[in-house]
Computed example of a mutant assay.
Amino acid sequence: MGTETNFEVVSAVLSAESISVEQAIKAVESESAGAVVSFSGVVRNHDGGKAVDRLSYSAHPTAHQVMKEVVEQLVAEHSGEAAQPVRIWAAHRIGMLEIGDPALVCAVAAAHRGQAFAVCSELVDRVKEQVPIWKEQFFTDGTVEWVGAGE
């Protein structure tokens, strides 16, 4: 593209290993960042009035690439807004997760809080809407439900 950008994508991955907001914050912190905004979407013990025991996330074979593209598109759309460096970290778990485990973690470091909040919020929404990941919910009553991304 040749366009200079102050955005740095530190991470944009799907992970079979555990992820944490602490890991994300540490990765994006810098001396130029006056604000670090993070999001941790965790597995809760209920959904739709039913008790949840655990979840499993499955990803389409293209999901790794889509995750990178989603973050790159966000960067491209916001690149003209950043006079100072903006650092982004995003990861979504795949595999079996227990109640309380982080499923989606994002962090954005920027010079000012307004930009950090805006970019982080938009990042979370886009990952949830566009990355082809499916959630299999295991309820305590023994039933199972599949939930598709981008519904």
Rank of each mutant, 00 (worst) to 15 (best):
146 W>N: 03
79 S>Q: 10
24 A>Q: 05
18 S>V: 13
147 V>R: 00
98 E>W: 00
3 T>L: 10
89 W>A: 07
144 V>M: 13
149 A>F: 06
144 V>F: 00
135 K>T: 09
147 V>E: 00
18 S>L: 06
18 S>T: 13
17 E>A: 15
103 A>D: 06
129 E>K: 14
18 S>C: 12
11 S>V: 14
68 K>N: 09
84 Q>A: 08
78 H>T: 10
145 E>F: 05
120 C>G: 01
19 I>V: 14
64 H>R: 08
83 A>G: 15
38 S>M: 08
104 L>A: 08
3 T>H: 14
6 N>Y: 06
113 R>F: 06
70 V>Q: 07
62 T>K: 14
85 P>W: 04
54 R>V: 06
15 S>G: 09
52 V>P: 07
47 D>W: 15
125 D>Y: 00
146 W>I: 12
69 E>C: 05
88 I>R: 02
33 A>N: 06
33 A>P: 07
140 T>I: 10
119 V>F: 12
22 E>W: 00
77 E>L: 11
75 V>G: 00
46 H>G: 08
46 H>N: 15
106 C>A: 09
1 M>T: 12
47 D>N: 15
84 Q>T: 03
19 I>T: 06
11 S>D: 14
2 G>L: 14
96 M>C: 07
107 A>G: 00
27 A>I: 06
87 R>K: 11
4 E>F: 10
115 Q>G: 10
85 P>T: 13
26 K>T: 14
106 C>P: 06
105 V>Q: 01
12 A>Q: 07
110 A>M: 07
26 K>F: 03
147 V>Q: 01
82 A>G: 02
93 R>K: 05
1 M>D: 13
51 A>H: 02
48 G>V: 12
42 V>Y: 00
8 E>L: 06
105 V>L: 04
117 F>M: 10
44 R>G: 09
120 C>A: 13
49 G>H: 02
80 G>M: 02
146 W>T: 08
143 T>V: 11
107 A>F: 03
28 V>R: 01
26 K>D: 15
139 F>C: 05
62 T>Q: 13
100 G>T: 08
6 N>G: 10
115 Q>V: 03
44 R>L: 02
48 G>R: 01
117 F>D: 03
6 N>L: 14
93 R>P: 06
96 M>P: 05
97 L>H: 05
43 V>W: 01
39 F>C: 05
125 D>V: 02
43 V>I: 14
7 F>P: 01
38 S>G: 14
130 Q>C: 11
101 D>Y: 00
40 S>E: 15
113 R>H: 08
85 P>I: 14
81 E>D: 12
